[in-house]
Design a protein around this nucleic acid. Sequence first.
DNA 1: ATGTCACCTGGTAGGTGA
Length: 260
Amino acid sequence: MKLATWNVNSLTVRLPQVLEWLAANPVEVLVLQETKMTDDKFPTLEIGAAGYQVQWFGQKTYNGVALISRTPALDVVKNIPGFEDAQARVIAGTVDGVRCIGAYFPNGQAPDSDKFEYKMAWLAALQSWLADELKSHEKLVLMGDFNIAPEDRDVYDPVAWAGQIHCTPQERAHFQALQAQGLVDAFRLFEQAPKSWSWWDYRNLAFRKNQGLRIDHVMVSPALKDSVKACSIDKAMRKNERPSDHAPVIVELDFSPNAV
DNA sequence: ATGTCACCTGGTAGGTGA
């Protein structure tokens, strides 16, 4: 069973790439972030024609998430229950017995900003909800654009980025708190090339200079840890003519799906 | 040094967010 996450930075612009990517990478689950469209604009027909089911949850201009799957997602949840949020950031569903949570974590802008306060409140709510989800779903995958670089090795210039957004101790403490709940960073289960990033700024020729961050992650619950066979970043998608600033992250589980 | 992209409003650019 293969699952993937991709921040597409506008599904309106990137839909052709998503369809091409799915044709070349027939994963069982793909979660998208930053679809940037209202629900009435969502391209359900195109995704259906590609042989996939889809659940979606968006808004005008900003944010927006989707859960694309071969088999239907069950018990779908949109955003964090109990956390009032005007922003569409989370979609969860159970696919082949695996609880799949796709999330677009807040960016946070700068550590002294209102948006950072919102990011901290959102992260606290996520932690609390995840504790419940883990109790009711032994097999769980949390994936998406975390907007957190967990360690210095996930940052092209850790000195310049020290204390900056994505790298603050408060954000990293939340990533570690997810790990303390038992979630495992699938990418780090394997030896990886140094300077492996999932996001490169559009500015400053960052991709050509390989100046990026690893802020897109796939985390698996303890019951799934031993079934993780591979995890990789599809950097080639950042070389497209009109790329997203993020690359997809793919995980492969050696796991026989439960009957549903 | 700061070399972008996407989307909005309201306009034949400027602002916002990332």
